[in-house]
């Protein structure tokens, strides 16, 4: 299922973005009732789920 090397880099980039190291530590921004860094992190997780879903769907052809 995990055949393509570029996929590995996609996950590394998503992991790098999911961890909120790049946010200003004093940020008080609130989006949709949550701290903005939490919303960003959740969105990255959603993208990771979609990428995983696409890999599973594409691998049906190989079954």
């Amino acid at each position: 299922m995990f055949q393509h090397f570029p996929t590995f880099f996609v996950y590394i980039i998503l992991l790098t973005l999911a961890i909120p190291w790049y946010w200003d530590s004093d940020s008080q921004l609130i989006w949709f009732g949550f701290p903005a860094w939490v919303v960003t992190s959740v969105l990255i997780s959603l993208i990771a789920s979609i990428v995983t879903c696409v890999i599973f769907l594409r691998s049906y052809d190989n079954t």
């Binding site: 995990f2 939490v38 959740v42 990771a48 995983t52 599973f56």
Partner: peptide, 15 residues
């Protein structure tokens, strides 16, 4: 909220 990422990571490792 890190729990969201580590639970997703489990499925990615299944790949």
């Amino acid at each position: 909220i890190v729990c969201l990422h580590f639970m997703t990571a489990i499925i990615i490792v299944y790949l």
